[in-house]
Amino acid sequence: MKITIQAPREGEEEEIIIRAGSISPHTFALIEALGGKSSGRLVGYVGECMEILQTELIFYFEAVDNRVFAYCDSEVYEVKQKLYEIEELLCNDNFFRASKSTVLNISKIKRIAPLFNGRFEALLKNGEKTVISRQYVSVLKQKLGI
C-alpha cells in the first residue's frame, strides 16, 4: 500500500483520504483507529462485503437475536456495534431510541399515530411501520424541541 503525506495549503483543514476499491479488514481497522466511527459513519456488512454507511440514509437500527441490523431504503446491513453503542454514537444526530430493540432516524419518520396505552406507531418514508414505546416518546419530543 502506498502512503502519501501532503502538507495542506494554508487555511485548509487536515484531511485523510483513503483510496481503496473495497474496504479490507485492515483498512477498516485503520478507519476505526483514526476515529472513523465518530465521524458519524458506521460499517455495514452484507455477507463478506463491507460498506461504510451514510447514517443519513439509514431508516432505523434493529436488534434481532443479539445481532444489530441497519435498515436503509431497500438494503439491510449488519453492524457490529451494540444498539446502545449506536444510540450513544448517533445521539447528536437525528437518531433516538424508539424501543428496547430499535433506534430510529427522526428524519425518516413521515408521521406518527397513537396506539394503545401510550405507544405510538411511526410510519416511515419508505412505507414501513415501527413502534415507539411510551417511555421513549419523551425522548422524541425532547429531540424535536417540544
Binding site: I109, R111, I112, G118, F120
Partner: peptide
C-alpha cells in the same frame, strides 16, 4: 381521556416533523 391525550401528543410531533 387517554386517547385524546395521546392524539394531542401525536399532532404536536407530526406538526414538528412537517416543519422539519
Amino acid at each position: 381521556s387517554t386517547a385524546m391525550q395521546y392524539r394531542d401528543i401525536a399532532n404536536k410531533i407530526n406538526k414538528e416533523l412537517e416543519e422539519r
